[in-house]
């Protein structure tokens, strides 16, 4: 189980690198889709069918929107001559990555290893959601009862996003007035 997840994760990392370095945007989008669907498989293996279902539809919608955006553009990735500044950026980011990994490695010593999670806040959720809320799907029970405010907030974020898209896609921001230029 753990080994299978490791293999999938390594593949996802490779796909992510491919997406970032792809020569044209279509292959980048497809590689990104690979990462997303890999995540769906991971969710299934980790016993989260709820998330797998949501992720698969959301990933599809995201892909559709990205494709709609790049549909009639030149899909070529911009040629990137490696200048002096780029070398600095690259070497700096590699140093940072190494540093972060080192400290992450040290920081997680002593935390619960994979699969040996203990319950604290959710112990009561697991035991009593069924009787208290009557929702057979524990995730939904937690989502709409104990953490209902989060969920309302998330719906609000979605509302905000719709309003923002309508704002951003207005053709002109100001009314034309003769007194102003």
């Amino acid at each position: 189980m753990e080994n299978l997840l490791i293999i999938i994760l390594v593949l996802m990392i490779i796909a992510a690198l491919a997406a970032i370095h792809a020569k044209d945007l279509i292959s980048a989008v497809i590689a990104q889709g690979f990462v997303g669907y890999g995540l769906v498989i991971c969710f299934f293996l980790l016993k989260a069918p709820e998330l797998a279902l949501v992720q698969i539809v959301l990933e599809t919608v995201t892909l559709i929107i990205i494709l709609a955006v790049i549909y009639d553009s030149s899909m070529k990735e911009i040629g990137e001559p490696i200048g002096k500044r780029d070398i600095v950026t690259y070497s700096l980011s590699f140093v940072l990555v190494a540093l972060f990994l080192y400290y992450f490695n040290k920081a997680i010593v002593g935390l619960n290893p994979f699969g040996e999670h203990t319950l604290r806040m959710s112990e009561m959720y697991v035991k009593e959601v069924l009787e208290l809320t009557g929702s057979a799907n524990l995730v939904k029970g937690v989502l709409w009862d104990f953490r209902g405010l989060d969920t309302l907030g998330e719906a609000t974020v979605l509302f905000t996003a719709a309003m923002s898209v309508l704002v951003i896609l207005r053709i002109s921001g100001k009314k034309h007035q003769l007194t102003k230029k």
């Binding site: 907030g153 609000t156 974020v157 905000t160 309003m163 923002s164 704002v167 951003i168 921001g173």
Partner: peptide, 17 residues
């Protein structure tokens, strides 16, 4: 809540398009 206010501020920054 951070996300709610941050997202609306992103849109408001672009209000003049």
């Amino acid at each position: 809540f951070t996300e709610i206010s941050a997202k609306s501020s992103y849109a408001l920054v672009a209000f003049g398009v």
